[in-house]
């Protein structure tokens, strides 16, 4: 059983078989994570570099843990701000690091396509840990693993992604992955944050949470960035919370319990009410646990193919 490509750049175009393989493999790694010694040897001797050009504590820690638990040697390179403002280009940075004989690169960058670009200029396997508003494949995979654990299958599962769809890589990767696995996906948010022609990706568009809660099994709540307000895409956080914030009251009107997901970090009581985030229907912490297992699976499957 092998992945089709040498890299994990996104879920757009990834086959159902490949997604299933990663999720099945992640299930095996969940068992490893329950052991007293949470470390296994398959990537012994492999060197992995985490290139984080964008601040991100959780994704970085999750990847580092996954790498170390596979016994890889790990180097993390973080830089605040964008590489664009720095003297050295991304290509130079990557080539320099590769000259130090590394096997895999995990990249987080503000530019859509940065991981694709990297995969063209280095020989190492590349894993996309988020490229601008484009994709964040491991996040969507861990979301899918969490949902598969809860519902056994993703087939026909009704998932709504709520928030700033226009700028969200989490939304895109989830749409691609969930659609491929047979789920019914919708999005909900203010019209200014719903990108053009998104219906053509096969998703339904809502602007009212009241309508969403009537029909879905799952709501995946996205983090709202304050800078969207500053650029005039919505009027105020208060108004956003009132109409698009996912709260216990709004969800209470649902005919069946709705599972609540969030990629973190949460702006409590802005996009998601605190009581709901901590409720029995929230799977937010399972998402975090599954994040390590999914990343181990992706790293393992790419790492052993060399």
């Amino acid at each position: 059983m092998k992945l089709r490509g040498r890299h994990l750049l996104g879920l757009d175009g990834m086959s159902r078989e490949d997604i299933s393989l990663i999720l099945d493999t992640a299930v095996s790694f969940k068992e490893v994570l329950e052991r007293p010694i949470k470390k296994v040897p398959p990537l012994q001797g492999k060197t992995i570099v985490n290139l984080f050009f964008e601040a991100s504590t959780r994704t970085r820690i999750s990847f580092e843990l996954a790498e170390r638990r596979l016994s890889a040697d790990v180097v993390t390179f973080s830089t605040a701000g964008s590489s664009v403002s720095k003297g050295e280009t991304l290509k130079d940075t990557a080539r320099n690091i590769e000259a130090m004989k590394i096997d895999m690169v995990v990249i987080r960058h503000s530019a859509p396509g940065a991981a694709h670009f990297l995969s063209r200029v280095v020989k190492a396997n590349v894993i996309n840990a988020g490229d601008g508003g484009h994709e964040h494949p491991t996040q969507a995979l861990l979301d899918m693993l969490t949902l598969r654990e809860k519902y056994a299958t993703l087939e026909k599962l009704k998932v709504c992604i709520v928030g700033d769809i226009a700028h969200s890589r989490v939304a895109r990767s989830n749409i691609y992955g969930l659609k491929t696995m047979g789920a019914e996906v919708s999005v909900c948010g203010p019209a200014t944050l719903i990108p053009r022609d998104i219906e053509r990706l096969g998703v339904r568009v809502f602007h009212r949470l009241e309508e969403v809660v009537k029909e879905v099994d799952v709501i995946n709540v996205l983090r709202i960035q304050l800078e969207r307000q500053e650029s005039g895409l919505f009027p105020s956080l208060r108004e956003y919370h009132r109409y698009f914030g996912v709260t216990k009251e709004k969800v209470a009107k649902a005919p069946k319990p709705i599972t609540i997901m969030h990629p973190g970090p949460i702006n409590r009581d802005v996009e998601l009410s605190a009581d709901l985030a901590d409720s029995e229907h929230s799977v937010i912490l399972q998402q975090v646990t599954n994040g390590v297992a999914v990343r181990m699976a992706a790293l393992y499957l790419l790492g052993i193919s060399n």
Binding site: S83, V84, T89, L90, K91, H109, S110, A111, P112, G113, A114, F117, V121, G132
Partner: peptide, 8 residues
């Protein structure tokens, strides 16, 4: 100039 990430 062109062999950079798309936005740059």
């Amino acid at each position: 100039e062109k062999e950079v990430e798309y936005p740059a």
